[in-house]
Amino acid sequence: MSDLSLTNPAVAGKTAPPAGARGFRLPTQWLGVAPFFIFALMFLILPTGYLIVGAFQNDAGEYTLENIVALSQPSILAAYWISIKVSLASALIGAFAGLAIAIAIVRGGLPNWVRATTLTFSGVASNFAGVPLAFAFLATLGRLGLVTVILNTVFGVNLYAHGFNILSFWGLTLTYIYFQIPLMVVIITPAIDGIKREWGEAAATLGATQSQYWRMVVIPVLWPSFLGTVILLFANAFGAIATAYALTGSSLNIVPILLYAQIRGDVLHNPHLGYALAFGMIFITGLANIFYIWFRTRSERWLT
């Protein structure tokens, strides 16, 4: 309705004095945001730009696509491929499991403390990544980990004899979903809260079955937030290195670990190939995030 409060950003925007009307004050206006833009330029945009430009140059400083083409050598391609696989698998599993948990705590009719506890714990677990998380999973599913030992001694199932290895694709994926699921819960819970109880009741009085209601309303409404979050989870896993490095050392050849080794010791014997490797990472996460922003604006349009 006619909400004319000044804190409404759209209205506040319109009532602000137009910058042009006081042209002589423009420099002081910009002074307020100058530190931020200088900071962002010097320590975010220029360093990244430096690498991107470097990816398209050779040692002599001439522009070339050689480095990008060189990314297609089998070892690098394999690294990208396993990175994408782990990120995608952990994002999808994390997203579906997180969605199920979020629906359970919001709509499942569980006591209030379940919701509060789950959200608090998710806040913690989504930030519990990196080296300590790797330690926790080594202690759980490593060769001497508690679950491995119990499965072996109590149930007679020897995980490692069945080909499981914590230092593998599945081991890494299982570890990553420890922070992916809670991140999904934290992001998607407000979206599920946005599904009003009355929508379901309105659909019911109009004769819709539960499954028709889900197909025609709930899923279309949640879809953009869900897909957007999957993409965010993907980028989140794709750039992560600490967990993987602490878990597997350099035995699992994912892109961030390859880049880490390149930065430390130029293992590719070509600095510009290193830049191209970094460019490839930005390209993939950037592409994913463009989708994310696009989907977010679409879902927010509905949920306001």
């Binding site: 990244t48 690498l51 980028a235 992560a240 290195i241 880490y260 930065i263 970094a278 990472m281 930005i282």
Partner: peptide, 13 residues
């Protein structure tokens, strides 16, 4: 942007 550009790339720069 820092969500798009991985930390390792920023520090490399």
């Amino acid at each position: 942007l820092p969500l798009i550009i991985p930390a390792i790339v920023i520090v490399f720069g």
